[in-house]
């Protein structure tokens, strides 16, 4: 995987303080050995913690995905049966579609509105903090709470239907938002967008403020107008940030769980299942842990593939 685009590329000036390490097998000098030891001391607490509580459970559940896992012992080897089953399972296809749709519906909106708000905030001086906090509140609210709030707003007898039907007559009759596939996905994507705008705004705001004022001034003395400065000077500089957001938000969208779990539970008729709600159902309704694990790792593979494609795409775009 190429992660260079994000933040991992090596510093041009050598890491550590002395000169960069030469390629090839490691024949450490005394100094290098000392540095590695120091690194170990820095790393060890977190690394052990991570290996124990994240890496090991992951490997274990990967292992489980190859078994007909019985929770009180007596598991039998399943080979690739769970993976084969997933490919043939129509609900997995629905889940893939829904997850993709959720990503496509919610990610661009977050970024677009986030950018707009950031641009507006960047141009004012008074009340910046105030607005920043207001726009950020949805981000810091828990998924459980905001899912319940949206469930209530989009209840078939709730506020949204009142406004759209009874008040404005925009729609002919009350819509059962959360009990049919299309509208349920729409509402949950709206929730995702609403909750994520603040995050995107903050990142763009930070990036905008990070643009050196000399660059803007130089363009301005060259006779560039406000619009040109925004599109020709600032936007290209925001590219890495844009890419970071697209990648992170897509990963987030693919891992959507609580909002679906609470608002539709994957129903009706499994039509609003996403990967994780379906996995959860297999694991804890039917205690089919082997299949549930296989679903998770398929999801991870999908996320990995999409992230790689996105990074490739942006990097090419970036180096034109």
């Amino acid at each position: 995987m190429s992660v260079d685009g994000v933040a991992t590329h090596a510093h041009p000036s050598a890491p550590g303080f002395p000169a960069g390490r030469r390629p090839g097998p490691w024949h450490p000098s005394r100094q290098e050995r000392q540095e590695a030891l120091a690194a170990l001391a820095f790393l060890l607490p977190g690394l052990i913690w991570f290996l124990l509580w994240t890496a090991y459970p992951l490997l274990k559940s990967f292992w489980m995905s190859f078994f007909h896992w019985q929770i009180l012992g007596g598991s039998t080897f399943a080979g690739l049966a769970h993976y084969a089953r997933a490919f043939a399972d129509p609900v997995i296809r629905t889940a893939l579609e829904n997850t993709l749709l959720y990503a496509v519906l919610s990610v661009p909106g977050q970024i677009l509105f986030g950018f707009l708000v950031a641009a507006l905030l960047d141009s004012i001086t008074k009340g910046k903090v105030f607005f920043r906090v207001l726009y950020y509140i949805p981000v810091i609210s828990s998924w459980v709470v905001v899912s319940l709030i949206f469930m209530y707003l989009f209840h078939s007898e709730g506020l949204m239907n009142y406004v759209l039907v009874d008040l404005t007559h925009f729609l002919p009759r009350h819509v059962p938002w959360l009990s049919q596939r299309g509208t349920a996905l729409l509402v949950i994507a709206l929730l995702g967008t609403w909750k994520g705008i603040g995050w995107s705004m903050l990142l763009f705001l930070a990036a905008l403020q990070g643009i050196p004022s000399e660059v803007v001034e130089a363009a301005s003395t060259d006779g560039a107008g406000g619009w040109q400065i925004a599109t020709r000077v600032k936007l290209p500089l925001l590219r890495p940030m844009l890419m970071f957001q697209v990648v992170m938000l897509t990963i987030g969208a693919f891992q959507a769980f609580i909002q679906f779990y609470i608002m539709t539970g994957g129903g009706p008729m499994n039509q609003t299942q996403v990967f994780l709600t379906y996995m959860y159902k297999q694991a804890f309704d039917f205690y089919d842990f082997g299949y549930a694990s296989a679903i998770s790792f398929l999801l991870a593979a999908v996320i990995l593939a999409i992230s790689v494609v996105q990074m490739r795409f942006f990097r090419q775009d970036y180096e034109y």
């Binding site: 007898e157 009350h174 009990s179 129903g267 009706p268």
Partner: peptide
Amino acid sequence: APTIAQSGL
């Protein structure tokens, strides 16, 4: 009532 389709009051 629409409760049969998980909707309504």
